[in-house]
Design a protein around this nucleic acid. Structure first.
Lengths: 238, 238
DNA sequence: GGACGTTAAAGGTCAGACGTTTTATGTCTC
DNA sequence: GAGACATAAAACGTCTGACCTTTAACGTCC
């Protein structure tokens, strides 16, 4: 017979799926500690080796983090960020991708954003401006990223939002390598307010244009930083 | 002492890294079979359980595929496609993200594409047209995707290109679910030729506009397919 | 109350055994 | 000689049990 066989799925895959479901469902919240290996082997009725293969898969994927002698913790709810970081991309490349996503997020958000979304953006922009005045770099980075992230969420596109989130760590990692060489780059106040106005007005074209312009500013800073070094090999990259 | 300890990395992580290096370097080519567990345990000097944890991590990541009784094969060189597919995105969301990446790829390619790149695009477009005339759906899909992929590569942005590639399976998967409901959608001959012209001319704005217009056509097809069903719940999607 | 040593518990690694599936081999029959 | 079948080898899948390493909590001592 050519019956494609009952294809009794591999046990480890079942375990992976069940552990992953606990994470994605939020029953195991990010930052929390999951049950011990002993407990899980009993609950799931599998050998420790099988369970360890499953957890190791999720650890590599970036969903879990194991600490010997302590326990295993939840780190993320999807594997996107981990996958992107393993690509080890150049900052310039990350910025170009972010520019594309940013513009599209702005465009879509201009059509779909809700009053609540607009209010949230208002608050984040105020935080961002406040941090800038206090010269608090970390707070500014947080607020700035939260603002962009909120725009991505307001796009109503889950994939776009997830991608944007996942790009964050790679961006910060690359950025940090350049930051101390060149210093804190000048933040563009007006650009973000212009974007917010466009979203409020539902002006898709202006929103996209404004978002692109904001990224351009960062790219300009990045280009300038490199222009100071005549030889690319003189920097930390490469 | 507060010396952050020698941080003797976990053995499994070393193994994962070494296996992954074999894949990313191309020493283990995609589609090929990797050495058996017995051989690897000897080469690496680790227990079978440790090796299995490593391979399991790469299997879940989508880099490897194990077949009981046969062997383990290389499936991909990075974990992006696997990560994106686990998000289980809506087709509409995938199309919107692809639109953003497509336009950006076209814009960048218009600045950076080489004569060889242009020649390659010429050939792919001819293949695409030929498949269309022969009413060969599979060949057309392949050629169409290869064309877009080539544009992404011509952008000179590795991250953008990788993302585009990784989006492919998710796109095809979603698309297949809709295809038979609505039939093969009308392909736009002129749009792609217009894009190629813009690239040849180095016209970034026109290239981006053309790319966006091409995606719009697919989105229109997708929208129409849903418009035929008055109740969204009447379709296969959730 | 703080410094220190002890100890229990958690994850990390190793070893060996057996099960299940696939592929290749070899034999038998027509 | 070609095809069908039975057999055996090889590969991944799972289980059991032991021991190591690291961490955190506890308790003791000064």
């Amino acid at each position: 017979m050519t019956l494609p066989s009952v294809r009794r799925s591999v046990l480890v895959d079942d375990v992976i799926q069940r552990l992953r479901a606990e994470i994605t469902s939020g029953r195991w919240p990010v930052g929390g500690r999951i049950p011990t290996e002993t407990a899980l082997t009993e609950q799931l009725g599998v050998a420790r080796g099988t369970l360890r293969e499953a957890t190791r898969a999720l650890i590599h994927a970036g969903l879990l983090q194991a600490r010997q002698g302590d326990g295993t913790y939840v780190r993320a709810t999807n594997e996107l960020a981990g996958a992107i970081q393993r690509l080890d991309s150049e900052l310039a490349d990350v910025l170009e991708v972010r520019e594309a996503l940013d513009a599209q997020a702005a465009r879509l958000a201009a059509e779909r954003i809700t009053p609540q979304g607009l209010a949230a953006l208002d608050g984040l922009l105020a935080e961002r401006a406040d941090a800038w005045q206090r010269r608090d770099r970390d707070a500014w980075v947080r607020a700035d990223h939260a603002f962009h992230q909120a725009v991505a969420v307001a796009s109503g596109n889950a994939l776009l939002s997830d991608l944007y989130t996942a790009l964050g760590p790679a961006l910060r990692r690359s950025m940090a390598a350049h930051w101390d060489e060149r210093g804190f780059h000048g933040a563009d106040h007006r650009g973000h307010e212009d974007l917010l106005d466009a979203l409020r007005a539902g002006d898709t074209a202006r929103a996209a244009r404004s978002a692109a312009a904001n990224i351009d500013a960062t790219q300009g800073w990045h280009r300038d930083a490199h222009a100071t070094a005549p030889e690319p090999s003189a920097t930390t990259e490469g």
